[in-house]
């Protein structure tokens, strides 16, 4: 059995760093726990669900996707874009965030394969951390996950001996490559967090497919103020915008995160907007996760991490919406 003392967890990060990996881990950043690049000496905060997820390392907020050298009189020459895909270990990824990778893999690979995403995905080893506790917003169990789920992970760390140790278990070849960095030991794994199933996503999906024009949406979306906090925090949301930025010498075509919650997201050049109000936009968000995605990709676009509800200033909670939808369908 491979075990790690919880107090020596950053030693593992250091060992990986020494071995040439970029290490990403939850780090306490002035009171906010972020999933970010780990640097030597930093404490790894395993206790809280970070505001960002491993998504940020595979599908960054802003990324150059094309580049052009600008010349005289409007002439330009394309410049190859170097792919940024360093060998990375994502440490302490929540099982919900690891599970989200399956959903991202699907959209970035139907017909058109997104090379830069895939390169980073291939270069990343996901070491997840089973959850010993859950908060009121967690609902992985309702969307097919589990606090000790292994989907999307190359290795999993399970809390043991009352939280004083972690048991390392490799789940893939990539994960097994890390085994040598963890010492042998003995420990008794702790019970994973207990969660109650709150709704049945299949029932939610059925109602959604049949009730696009329901008055429910108008009322359900009243509180939504139309920011992108939920989408940007979501480990599955992947909508983006393409924007050119240039100076006199160079143009960079950037892929930036975007959100279906923004009013101008779908605005046509003609001025027509297919989703003119927040209820249409909130409906799109819920439908995309629980109806459109499962139809297209045979997977939900929600893994129950609860970040959207935890962060929403207006208390919009997708799990609660799903509970209400399930009740409507009964």
């Amino acid at each position: 059995m491979k075990t790690i003392e919880i107090g020596r967890f950053s030693d593992l990060a250091q060992a990986l760093s020494t071995a040439g990996y970029r290490v990403a881990a939850p780090v306490d950043d002035g009171g906010v726990v972020r999933f970010k690049e780990w640097t030597k000496g930093r404490e790894i905060a395993l206790g809280a669900v970070p505001v960002d997820s491993v998504k940020d390392f595979l599908f960054p907020r802003s990324e150059v996707v094309a580049r052009f050298a600008l010349e005289e009189a409007g002439a330009f020459t394309p410049v190859p874009v170097e792919r940024f895909a360093p060998k990375t270990v994502a440490l302490g990824v929540r099982p919900c965030d690891a599970a989200a990778l399956a959903a991202l893999d699907a959209v970035f690979n139907w017909d058109y394969r997104d090379g830069s995403y895939n390169a980073r995905r291939a270069a990343t080893t996901v070491v997840s951390l089973a959850c010993a506790k859950a908060d009121a917003h967690c609902f992985c169990i309702s969307v097919g996950g589990a606090p000790d789920g292994t989907a999307g992970a190359d290795a999993i760390l399970r809390p043991a001996d009352g939280g004083s140790k972690l048991v390392f278990e490799a789940l893939s070849d990539k994960g097994r490559l890390l085994e040598a960095m963890v010492s042998d030991g003995q420990a008794v794994p702790d019970a994973p967090a207990a969660l109650k199933k709150r709704f049945d996503p299949a029932a939610v999906g059925r109602w959604l497919a049949a009730n696009f024009e329901s008055p429910f949406w108008k009322e359900a979306a009243l509180a939504c103020l139309g920011c992108g906090a939920c989408a940007y925090a979501c480990p599955v949301c992947h909508c983006f915008d393409l924007q050119d930025e240039s100076d006199r010498k160079e143009c960079r075509r950037l892929r930036n995160w975007d959100s279906c919650g923004f009013g101008l997201f779908t605005l046509h050049a003609s001025g027509h907007n297919p989703r003119p109000d927040q209820s249409a936009r909130w409906r799109q968000r819920v439908m995309h996760k629980f109806s459109i995605y499962p139809q297209k990709f045979k997977t939900l676009a929600c893994t129950g991490c609860g970040r959207c509800a935890r962060l929403c200033q207006a208390g919009m909670a997708i799990a609660e919406t799903c509970e209400r939808i399930e009740a409507l369908g009964r």
């Binding site: 139907w110 997104d114 696009f212 992947h238 983006f240 393409l242 779908t266 439908m287 995309h288």
Partner: peptide, 17 residues
């Protein structure tokens, strides 16, 4: 519809599913 990627990724051109 409004599109950005053209290849089924950016998430803005869908009509229902």
């Amino acid at each position: 519809n409004r599109m950005k990627c053209g290849v089924g990724k950016c998430g803005r051109c869908n009509v229902g599913g």
